[in-house]
Simulated assay, not measured.
Amino acid sequence: MYNRVRRKKVAEINVVPYIDVMLVLLIIFMVTAPLITQGVKVDLPKADAEPLSKDQKPPLVASVDAEGNYYLAVGTSKNQKLSGEEVASLVKAHLAKAPDTPVVVNGDGAVSYDAVIQLMVLLQKQAGVPSVGLMTDSPEK
């Protein structure tokens, strides 16, 4: 009678639904990424100080937490616990590329005054920072 033409079975995967899912996930991550804040949790002392000007470069933020651990944030980089020598060498390397970058110390309010001063001396002597600023929170009105 009729000769039926047998079709070969296709063993290919339809990837279109996977591409759709990936695009949705990409959009979700793009929207949520700026909302994630990074940094070391410190309780800054309150003071009525002038903020950095908006046209200035983003500062290098050297932090010391309540336990006396050192951290360094450059732009949006993640904070990692560092030794004093590592902080000094990283700051020195960054200032070699961009010498007009401001450097500020972000010290927890509960940390000893000595730990903040030691970090400032480390930045000035070993890293060659000409001036170091101190970060504060604005007082509640």
Rank of each mutant, 00 (worst) to 15 (best):
K92H: 11
V103Y: 00
S138G: 05
G133R: 02
N79T: 10
F29A: 06
K97L: 11
S83M: 11
S83R: 13
D48R: 10
V121P: 00
D55F: 02
L122G: 15
S89G: 04
A49C: 08
L134F: 06
K92Y: 05
R7V: 12
L119C: 07
D55G: 02
D114F: 07
N106W: 12
V103N: 02
L72S: 10
V24A: 15
H94Y: 12
Q38E: 06
G84N: 14
S89A: 14
P45H: 09
A66Y: 09
A62H: 04
A88E: 13
S63F: 06
S89R: 15
S77F: 03
V31G: 03
E50M: 05
D65Q: 02
V10E: 00
V74Q: 11
K81E: 13
V111R: 00
V61E: 08
I117Q: 07
Q124F: 00
A115K: 14
V74N: 06
Y2S: 10
V104G: 05
D100I: 06
V132K: 01
G75M: 06
S77M: 10
V10W: 00
T136Q: 10
Q118R: 13
V111Y: 03
V74K: 11
A62T: 05
V10G: 12
A49L: 15
R6I: 11
G84Q: 13
Q118C: 01
D65A: 02
A73L: 12
D100S: 11
T32S: 04
M1P: 15
M1W: 03
P58T: 14
V87E: 15
V16N: 04
N79Y: 08
G128L: 00
G84P: 08
A96S: 09
V64N: 02
V24H: 01
A115I: 07
K8F: 01
T101H: 10
L95Y: 10
K41R: 10
Q118H: 12
L52V: 06
I19M: 14
S77Y: 05
L23C: 12
V61K: 11
E86H: 07
V21D: 05
V116W: 08
V42H: 13
L123A: 05
V21P: 00
L23H: 01
L82G: 08
Y71P: 05
V42F: 00
N14T: 00
S63Q: 04
N3P: 14
T136M: 10
V129C: 03
Q124V: 05
L134N: 01
P99A: 11
D108Y: 08
Q38F: 07
Y2F: 12
A33M: 04
V5G: 14
K41M: 09
Q38M: 02
V91L: 08
G128D: 03
Y2P: 15
A110K: 14
D43R: 13
K54M: 03
G84Y: 06
D108G: 03
V116S: 01
A96D: 05
V111M: 05
A127W: 03
G68R: 13
V87W: 07
L26I: 04
V16R: 12
A62N: 06
P34G: 06
V105T: 07
S83F: 09
L26H: 01
L123N: 09
V74S: 08
N106G: 01
D20Y: 09
E85V: 02
V15L: 14
A11G: 01
K57L: 14
L25H: 01
V74I: 15
V105L: 08
V24W: 07
A33E: 14
V74G: 04
V5S: 15
A66I: 13
V132T: 04
L95M: 02
V87K: 09
S89F: 04
P17Q: 00
N14Y: 09
P130H: 00
